[in-house]
């Protein structure tokens, strides 16, 4: 595929934070591609660097203590890493929209919902106040908020959680962005409202051609929404591919473990399978594979040498993919050479 098929392309991103106890290597070499008009889900253990990854694309990493030490992120043909804050400000909100787990923290509690969205329209799209108001009503209607004419003069605290998340979506798509980044958008909602919000995102994707990055830890949400999936562990993407590759042909032991830990609808299963242990300390990441301590298949090489990424469209960073490795429960990518 040629570059222009991708809305966003991230290569070898690395981010660290200075802390009292030392330097945390929160993101260590992350690469992924977001196809135009598709949804890429990023999943992975808590603290593995999902939020930091997308925050660094948006210029939302506090610097100091944060630092992007390496890598590139291209939105279309435009590099995002290392550009002037003013230039990034112009892109954020305009060409990339973002919604968060907690919409309350992203909205101004002292300003009506309507004014907050209108302000974006005035600043980024140069609309007049009255045109902006009409557009806000249209956006609230698009995101299925009932009685938008009345709702726009209300304050965030007068909205329920599901409605706030809709308002947040309205705000994030106000400037017709190319890319929408949703960081756990439905984690705080119950499943009936979650189903509505997910459907709304799917509808917006087909009507507006939105490319979406969806961060979630719910594999059910991934199964419903994603075209492509990147599985992260300890600051790295350990497996990536089409959604069916990840669910039906898991090529990394961590992905297998994640799937086994999912609650099941099978009444005979009364126990959850857990992945024993905890993720490595990102102050001093292990020299080899980050998952080696918890991996039932770990070999000696795993502890000493970081595994390369094997495969092409379906990739996994695991020594079990090496042609010399013994048979194992992961799907073999049947590659003779490393990914390029």
């Amino acid at each position: 595929m040629m570059t222009h098929d991708y809305a966003l392309q991230v290569d070898n991103l690395a981010v660290e934070f200075d802390t009292y106890g030392g330097v945390v290597q929160a993101v260590r070499d992350v690469s992924f591609k977001l196809r135009k008009g598709k949804t890429l889900a990023i999943v992975g253990e808590s603290g593995c660097g999902k939020s930091v990854t997308v925050q660094s694309l948006m210029g939302l990493i506090p610097m100091p203590p944060g630092r992007i030490t390496r890598g590139s992120a291209r939105l279309g043909n435009d590099e995002l890493i290392g550009i002037a804050p003013a230039a990034l400000n112009a892109i954020r909100g305009k060409r990339i929209g973002m919604i968060f787990q907690d919409p309350m923290s992203a909205l101004n509690p002292t300003m009506t919902i309507g004014r907050q969205i209108a302000e974006t329209l005035v600043v980024h799209r140069g609309l007049s106040a009255s045109a902006a108001r009409a557009e806000v009503i249209e956006l609230l209607r698009l995101t299925q908020i009932s009685q938008p004419e009345k709702r726009l003069d209300q304050y965030p605290f007068e909205f329920s959680g599901g409605m706030l998340q809709r308002a947040m979506i309205a705000l994030s798509i106000a400037c017709k962005p190319e890319v929408l980044i949703a960081d756990e958008p439905t984690t705080a909602l119950d499943v009936t409202i979650q189903a509505q919000i997910l459907l709304l995102l799917q509808e917006l994707q087909s009507s507006h051609g939105l490319s979406i990055i969806l961060i979630t830890h719910d594999l059910g949400v991934v199964a419903r929404m994603a075209h492509d999936v990147a599985v992260m562990y300890a600051g790295q993407v350990v497996e990536s591919g089409l959604v069916d590759d990840i669910f039906y042909r898991s090529a990394h032991p961590y992905t297998l473990g994640l799937r086994a830990a999912m609650p099941s609808n099978d009444p005979r299963k009364r126990q959850l399978q857990i992945i024993p242990g905890s993720p490595p300390d990102l102050f001093a990441p292990p020299p080899g594979c980050g998952f080696a301590d918890r991996c039932a298949q770990a070999m000696r090489v795993c502890r000493d040498t970081p595994p390369p990424a094997y495969g092409h469209t379906h990739q996994a960073r695991c020594w079990l993919q090496d042609p010399l490795a013994p048979a194992s429960p992961v799907t073999s990518l049947m590659v003779n050479n490393k990914a390029d």
Partner: peptide, 20 residues
């Protein structure tokens, strides 16, 4: 949502409409 993409593609159940 079920952690099974095939199942989710076939899903046709009714959405519960309206806000709480």
């Amino acid at each position: 949502p079920e952690p099974d993409p095939e199942h989710e593609r076939q899903r046709q159940d009714q959405l519960i409409s309206g806000e709480i």
